[in-house]
Computed example of a mutant assay.
Amino acid sequence: MTTRLSQIVAVEKTRKTEAYGALTAAHHEVMKSPLLTGISRTYRPRDEEGEQLPAESTRVQLRAEDAISRALSGLAPFYDVTATKDWANTTARADIRIGDQIVISQAPVTYLLFLEKQLTSLHTFVEKLPVLDPAEQWSWDDQAGVWRTAAYETIRSKKVPRNHVKAPATDRHPAQVDVYFEDVPVGTWTTVKYSGALPATRRQALLDRIQLMRDAVKYAREEANSAEIQNQHPGATLLNYLFAA
């Protein structure tokens, strides 16, 4: 009998929950000693005139073998589903295509799942790469191996004290002078800015390419998951061996 890998993946979680539930329930059952215990007591007086007492009995409510059977009935389907998925992962494959180009040929499902996670990480990494300040005009400097702006000049000024005579000196009073500072150009700064950041267009192109690949990997995974696979049933064989009488 064949099925699709996507169907197996869809029910795997349910089978796992059912299996662990059955095993846990069986474990809790066998921990309740009174359920596993029974007794039968009858009373016989020493002579015929002695008091007659009714028999007493407690029935065994749980057999350990029954608990084992219930646990195994839940475990076997889970083992089978997992086996089918793992066997299928060795055969279910698909090409990663972008347009007419095959980037990776016949990639297995496990590798496609790996790539999806890696491409998500790469997208986050590229998304946070710094870009050049759009307020500046940048050009590539082959010699320095970085981006640079055109040189621009700024004036360097220095504050020079100046005297302002408010009142000239007389025979009786000294001159009244205010001191103030004047900005006087003393030189010129020539500035060139450099940057190792990326042009915004380069970063966007990388993000677009990564997203294109993410989509291609997703399509390939869906194609691989739709492949028909052979159901596997090793669960009962394994468990019967382990719990054989």
Rank of each mutant, 00 (worst) to 15 (best):
Y180K: 06
S69I: 14
D47E: 15
T42D: 12
T37F: 06
V217N: 04
A64G: 00
Y20N: 10
H233W: 02
Q230F: 05
V184P: 04
R93T: 13
Y43S: 07
Q176R: 13
L5A: 15
P199V: 01
L206V: 01
M213Q: 08
T110A: 14
Y194V: 03
T17P: 00
E49K: 05
Q118D: 03
A150W: 02
T3Y: 08
R214C: 04
F125M: 10
V217P: 02
L132F: 03
N231Y: 08
A64R: 05
A167E: 13
T91W: 10
V217T: 02
W138A: 04
T3P: 01
A55R: 15
T170F: 03
S226V: 00
K128E: 11
S157I: 11
A67M: 04
H173A: 09
L239K: 11
V146M: 04
K158D: 09
W140Y: 09
D86M: 08
T124E: 10
M31I: 02
V131E: 14
T120Q: 15
T188I: 02
R4N: 14
T17V: 14
L115C: 05
G50K: 10
G50S: 10
D86L: 09
V165G: 01
Q101K: 15
Q232R: 09
P134Q: 11
K117E: 11
V184K: 12
A197M: 01
E48D: 12
S57H: 13
A22R: 02
D208L: 08
K193G: 03
P234I: 13
P54R: 10
Q230S: 11
K159D: 12
V11C: 11
D133S: 06
L72M: 12
L35P: 01
L242P: 07
K166W: 10
A224L: 08
E49R: 04
T124R: 14
H233F: 13
L35A: 13
G145C: 05
K158A: 13
L23N: 00
N225D: 15
